[in-house]
Design a protein around this nucleic acid. Structure first.
Lengths: 236, 236
DNA sequence: ACAAAAGTGTTGCTTTTACACCCATGC
DNA sequence: GCATGGGTGTAAAAGCAACACTTTTGT
């Protein structure tokens, strides 16, 4: 571990701080909210599951770029929803020495993601957030924070559409809300409210296949969303 | 500027990242929202105004502790409202080399603060947010972010009470909202709503002095606040 | 015909908004 | 007595919550 002295403003300061980014990547699969974890190949916490992440590199133009890079090392996705969450820098959070991490929230469409373990990982997998292994470092805390942020954002931002395919049924949209908020929602009120906003565009297309009535498919309109007021509009 | 190579996970990584904390400290004075700035004594941006801040030090147990320390170097205050805002780490934000800063929001009671320039500053002062000098680094952007966060938080958290004296009148509370949100609020609705929540405790005491009817003094009850629902309750 | 999920309206209640005048004090 | 800011109520509108049955399809 490096421990370098250099001079700033005339006083000697020990620079033993490193900066990482970690990514909490969520997707909805079947009936649960899932998070992407990697199995660590190296110490510390070798063989434990952890959030994907790594050091900020000179090539990263921004923190967000670093987070996108880390995520793309474990998946085939790019151009995804990515939002800075919070920074964690407690003195003892990394046994190797002082490490500040900037945590990001990523939202993926499950069906578009292919996993591929990066060089520092012996595995990558989705885990349902309600049945998780012990995580390395303070990643458990970071994940808890991410979940509460997601619950919060879903009520006043259109982030949920980043978890769904481009075309979706009203029921799958409602499922996403129910999974994330962890509660049942009245379907009549849900539909009324969403259809009332005008941000769903009817695709004039139906699902087929089930032994039941087909469902209409909708698309999200960012355009219509942006003309809504900025107060919570998706509270149920 | 140091530029150190060391080995992590078998690959050589250039560690030229430094970590700072910057603090956007607000207070309400007369009829404006004011922010605390320091005048830089050293390059870069010598003699320009900037947010108070500085390097994360080994003695700082946490990022928040570092922010509190930086703020206490310019003021006499401690034990204040302090909340992490956002981290900024674009490659070129500091001409000396890569520097990630974790920005904090602080809320102070104007009348309790005494200013004292720290060693790295040739001046400290309050500036109304609507009449600011050019700021060093990307501090203008950080400040904008802080203002929008404050506007946002004031609607569903009791943070406004950190800007007011312990005892305050309903009018001074309303002023705080009007200053921060930048709009007039109907005073009957404002009072009804706030008194209805039960989080204001009547002190059975009146202001005196003005050539007008005296006003009742109230105190904030954290206890009552915590039993309210978690939806926005201070929207006007 | 039946199982399974899609789709649909109404009512009471709560919350929000809009709006104008009287009250207590110092000078 | 007048100037100054403190303090009060009501009605219309909008939004929210609770509630159960019909429709369409595949088998």
């Amino acid at each position: 571990m490096p421990n370098i002295e250099y001079t700033v403003f005339g006083s000697s300061i020990v620079n033993d701080v490193r900066v990482t980014v970690d990514v909490v990547a969520f997707a909805i699969e079947q009936d649960s909210l899932e998070v992407l974890l990697i199995k660590r190949k190296y110490e510390p916490f070798r063989n434990q599951w952890a959030l994907p992440g790594g050091f900020l590199l000179p090539g990263d133009g921004s923190l967000e770029e670093a987070a996108a890079r880390e995520l793309s090392e474990e998946t085939n996705v790019s151009d995804i929803y990515l939002e800075q969450l919070y920074s964690f820098g407690d003195r003892d959070r990394d046994p190797r020495g002082r490490t500040v991490t900037i945590a990001y929230l990523a939202l993926l469409r499950a069906e578009e993601v292919e996993l591929q373990a990066a060089t520092d990982a012996s595995g990558v997998a989705w885990f349902p957030v309600h049945s998780l292994p012990d995580l390395a470092f303070d990643h458990g805390r970071i994940l808890d924070y991410a979940i509460s942020r997601l619950r919060y954002k879903i009520e006043y931002s259109p982030c949920v559409f980043s978890l769904l395919p481009e075309s979706f049924t009203l029921r799958s949209l409602q499922n996403a809300y129910e999974i994330i908020l962890g509660k049942q929602i009245d379907n009549r009120n849900f539909r009324k409210k969403f259809l009332g906003t005008g941000i769903l565009i009817d695709q004039d297309e139906l699902t087929r296949g089930g032994p039941h009535r087909p469902a209409k498919l909708y698309k999200f309109s960012l355009n219509e969303f942006s003309r809504l007021a900025d107060r919570p509009i998706f509270t149920f």
